[in-house]
Amino acid sequence: MFFMNSLLFTTLLFAGLSANDYVGFTFFIGYMAMFAASVFFFFERQQVEGKWKTSLLIAGLITMIASVHYYYMRDVWMTTGQSPTQFRYIDWILTVPLMCVEFYLILKAFGAKIGLLWKMIGYSLVMLVAGYLGETAFRSSSVIWGIISTVGYVGILYEVWLGSARKLAGNSDDPNLKAAFNALSWFVLVGWAIYPIGYMAIETDGWLRGVIDVRNMDLIYNIGDAVNKIGFGLVIYSLAIKSSAKAA
């Protein structure tokens, strides 16, 4: 059975991945890059001070979950040539709230309340669930779902740029935390912006569909996902290493 599966998989690879299939390339690269990042974060967890271990575990889980989904997405792409929308959303529904947890974890030492965590998770779920419904089940009213999804995204933006999370980071006396928080805020502002843009480029009724090709959106998602998730984890890792070195 295992042999048959391996054979089928190898056949799929050679049959499906043509030299100019850049989207297919990025599915492979995304899968391997996130898998490697997970291994890195899990192993490096031993090097940091106790209070940072959970943060690094979450960073590793984010890339691990994404890597598993990219494994499946890659197969969908290879066999059908279609955008693997369902798998993308399953991945995001798991990983985006975890990224919000990271904000809470790094601010916890500076007085972050559990309310901040739930608020961030709530915003991220509004963003993703509304996005999924608009992109799949309720395509005829995708604009309304897009607006609801955007409100969720802006809620996260508000928290990290002007809200309580920003105030906590600003009040801390740790320059490393401030720099890391700032970097994470930029990931949310610039890196995450590709997702609402992608939503507006959906095939039948997205109004950006004439501006951005859906195939190119997969390329942008794949690169964006890898940069956002691995980059997010690396910022946390860098903060943890600096903070641990300072404590030692």
Partner: peptide, 12 residues
């Protein structure tokens, strides 16, 4: 940024 994103979402 907020109104820009909302406008994009509601543009249709």
């Amino acid at each position: 940024i907020f109104i820009f994103l909302l406008l994009l979402a509601a543009y249709p």
